[in-house]
Design a protein around this nucleic acid. Structure first.
Lengths: 153, 153
DNA sequence: TGCGATTAAATCGTGTGCGATTAAATTTCT
DNA sequence: AGAAATTTAATCGCACACGATTTAATCGCA
């Protein structure tokens, strides 16, 4: 059994754990976005779903789930809320009645512009260059990839 | 209004957003930990609370909340579950009856050893050196700090 | 053709997270 | 000393997140 963080067999501090740093950063991001997105009537996961649709409209629940690493049990109620807010439309596809296709309504498409300010606000707040952010994103994606790949053992 | 991610006013891909990278990495970590911690009868947030107590026993709900960035509305039910599992004890302090002091029970203290393997397993899985992890943790904490500091505006 | 296997969403139950409010104890200030 | 302000947990309601199950549609294969 490998000692994960120190040469000595001495427990590291909580702050040294990668999982805890991720936990905190994710929470901080959540707390930062919440009031800004609240003005748009969105939650953070709803915002991510809309971002996915802005990039590629008309995706199935499964496609969205794969992109966002979410299952239908999470997405279905979330999408129903977006639908009842008039931002997206949910329809079963004609080809395959099992699939539900999610597409943007005009009101949902408009939010793209407003949400731009939110991302810009975060960018200003953290005060990092594009290169630094790019490197950090790559590192995080590397960790994500390794962890996801190493799961089924 | 600053364009956050590109010279051109062209929306970046979802994968370029730091918030999304964090979201994915945090979820990946969660999904990795869940089955391992499940064998110990713990959830991920419960594990973090225990880690905090292993490092410093006998903390108030407020202290734990400050460390983990959680409010009493989240901690109270979580701590009650840890208590009913026999891992911790909750008692109001004699000095100040408002505060609830949380301390480890023997069974909770024992889990420290077992949980060690979980951290070691993650360390092996991501396959990064201590230096790389340390740098990443520092970068993440930097982002967390900047975001938290920039909130009240 | 038709029946079992597979696939895609939806449903259910539990456990976070958090904004808002409440309740009780302590501190402050006159 | 005593009322008002403050502090600390707890409570309530809503929205994820996910394991497990269910339902409905499609596929595959004899």
């Amino acid at each position: 059994m490998t000692d994960p963080h120190s040469e000595k067999h001495q427990p590291p501090h909580l702050d040294d754990f990668l999982c805890f740093a991720l936990y905190k950063a994710h929470h901080a991001m959540n707390r930062f976005y919440k009031p800004l997105l609240g003005e748009l009537g969105l939650t953070y996961p709803q915002y991510l779903v809309l971002m996915a649709l802005w990039e590629q409209d008309d995706q199935s629940v499964g496609q969205l789930g794969e992109l966002l690493h979410l299952e239908s049990n999470t997405l279905t109620p979330l999408l129903k809320r977006l639908e009842s807010a008039g931002l997206v439309r949910r329809r079963r596809t004609a080809n395959d009645e099992r699939q539900v296709q999610v597409s943007l309504m005009p009101e949902g498409r408009e939010l793209k512009q407003k949400s731009w300010d939110v991302a810009a606000c975060l960018f200003e707040t953290i005060g990092m260059s594009r290169e630094e952010i790019g490197t950090l994103v790559e590192d995080l994606n590397g960790v994500t990839g390794a962890v996801v790949a190493g799961r089924g053992r």
